[in-house]
Design a protein around this nucleic acid. Structure first.
Length: 475
RNA sequence: GUGGGUGUAGCUCAGCUGGUAGAGCACUGGACUGUGGCUCCAGGUGUCGCGGGUUCGAACCCCGUCAUCCACCCCA
């Protein structure tokens, strides 16, 4: 006989193959995952880098945060607006600034099948302003208070608190340059954090003036730093040319020490060169915040490099987050809508990174109260077909779970316990003959037979008619 | 995009300078086809991230790659 040599698949050692062959067939797995060969050849999928799944157990925390935010925004009288998750690339390029990092290297930009140049939104304000213009909202009232909540996308190396898909909640007031708008915006900003349980926040505040005052200030900075220019890092020297305000933003202790050099004299402050109108505006905002008892402090290093940002800029940070400490920020953008092709229209807004808010809440052990359990409907052989009907009727009012696989009573009771149900309705055959069901309270084990007519009354007594609370509590 | 750390069961982690898969929790079934938690028994607990290479032999060594974490850049 001629020996036949069969090539052995290289991806699977013989030892492992034998092990697998000894295992009993698992039909429940086979039909889900497919035959072994197909599985071995297929790549196993995972969420793309920088994205993540929010699973049951974690999503409740998100729902709680979102619900609290909606309540506050609603009480402030703001209206929700939902804009597309992708827009023309050009919209973001204009609103964020061609030279900005976001546009230069963080944009998810793509062409669709119609060769349109599109991008996933990196922030929310651009889309809101576009919608404002597209639908002529200016004609329907001068001042619009809007909010949005949803995913944003930026391409960058992910780390804790920074993801490629992240969620923001934000608000805008379009149509007034009054300092009162800035004050309300910051009050809303702070009250959102308050609703999530943040206390003792301090808002960092600055005024960027106008593009003209910023240019003048940039020149002052260049002159001031000229003596130590050679000692600055390469990045800082580059920024001194393109965006001098950013030089002050450095985290380098060496560079910060240079700023303290007595030979330089005191650092010029942007507030010192503000135009009189911007100065008055800034003072009015500060006075308004003080009147409301909102803690704030001026941060001369707080800058926004983009041309369309004007006057007020603000941020809050949480040091527990590490390098990505910014929880949210905002400011006035009186030049933006004009730059997008509208008539000159002032606006002010903010955005808050919900992923980072959730990180802080998680670290603090703040969790939504556990969901109060509902009803588990257990059936027996002779009442099996009744269960789906009764369950459907009860589900008009109650949270009802039941077994789908015709399992034994023991298994159903275990499932009921595991599901967190408070009450089991047992469709016993004998009881059903008499027009009754058994109602058992799991916490006490107490059980009684009730007629169908008395069932609702018994359930209300055990479960209470009150809706479940979703207030937060500390573990 | 730059630099560094880490990838072993669903989760938290052991695994000695190469010598053939481990614990706890969780999960499923059974003891218990008319009653959950406790206990006991049985069990999937596994592409040792993935792909190459070195070796008689790789979870361990080398290279690449992916993911994750930290820092930078920048922001939320």
């Amino acid at each position: 006989m001629v020996p036949v040599v069969r090539p052995r698949p290289r991806f699977q050692p013989l030892r492992r193959a034998r092990r697998r062959d000894r295992r009993p067939l698992r039909p429940d797995r086979l039909h889900v995952r497919g035959p072994r060969v197909a599985r071995a050849m297929a790549e196993r999928h995972q969420a793309p880098r920088g994205t993540r799944d929010l699973l049951p157990g974690e999503i409740e925390r998100w729902q709680w945060v979102e619900a609290r935010a909606r309540e506050v925004l609603d009480r402030y009288g703001y209206r929700e607006i939902r804009t597309p998750i992708f827009e023309d690339y050009d919209l973001f390029a204009r609103s964020s600034g061609e030279a900005s990092d976001v546009v230069q290297k963080e944009m998810y930009r793509f062409k669709d099948l119609g060769d349109r140049d599109l991008a996933l939104r990196p922030e929310g304000t651009a889309g809101v302003c576009r919608a404002y213009l597209q639908h002529g909202m200016a004609q329907q009232g001068r001042i619009h208070r809007l909010w949005y909540m949803g995913p944003m996308f930026r391409y960058g190396r992910p780390q804790k608190g920074r993801y490629r898909q992240f969620r923001q909640v934000g608000a805008e007031i379009i149509g007034t340059a009054a300092p009162g708008a800035d004050v309300e915006m910051i009050a809303l900003f702070v009250d959102l954090f308050d609703a999530w349980g943040f206390r003792d926040l301090t808002v960092a505040l600055n005024s960027l003036g106008t593009p003209e005052t910023r240019r003048a200030y940039g020149e002052r900075l260049r002159q001031w730093l000229a003596p130590v220019r050679a000692k600055l890092g390469a990045d800082a020297q580059q920024r001194l040319e393109t965006n001098p305000l950013r030089v002050l933003d450095t985290k380098s202790p060496e560079e910060r020490a240079l700023f303290e050099d007595p030979a330089l004299g005191t650092m010029p402050k942007l507030l010192d060169v503000l135009d009189p109108e911007s100065r008055d505006h800034f003072e009015a905002v500060r006075a308004g915040l003080t009147a409301l008892g909102i803690a704030h402090e001026t941060d001369h290093g707080l800058v926004r490099g983009l041309d369309y940002y004007t006057r007020t800029a603000f941020e809050v940070h949480d040091r527990s987050l590490g390098a990505q400490s910014a929880l949210g920020g905002g400011g006035r953008y009186d030049g933006l809508i004009e730059a997008l092709g509208g008539s000159p229209t002032p606006g002010v807004g903010f955005s808050i990174g919900l992923d980072r808010v959730l990180l802080v809440l998680e670290a603090r052990g703040v969790a939504p109260a556990a969901h109060a359990g509902g009803i588990y409907l257990a059936a027996m052989e002779g009442t099996r077909t009744l269960a789906p009907m009764l369950a459907r009727a009860l589900r008009q009012v109650y949270t009802v779970d039941l077994d789908l696989e015709a399992r034994g009573l023991n298994a159903q009771m275990k499932a009921a316990d595991k599901s967190g149900a408070r009450v089991v309705i047992l469709l016993g055959e004998e009881e059903w003959q008499r027009g009754e069901v058994l109602v058992k309270e799991l916490a006490t084990g107490a059980q009684q037979a009730v007629t169908l007519e008395g069932l609702v009354e018994a359930l209300d007594r055990l479960l209470g008619p009150a809706p479940v609370s979703d207030e937060a509590e500390t573990r």
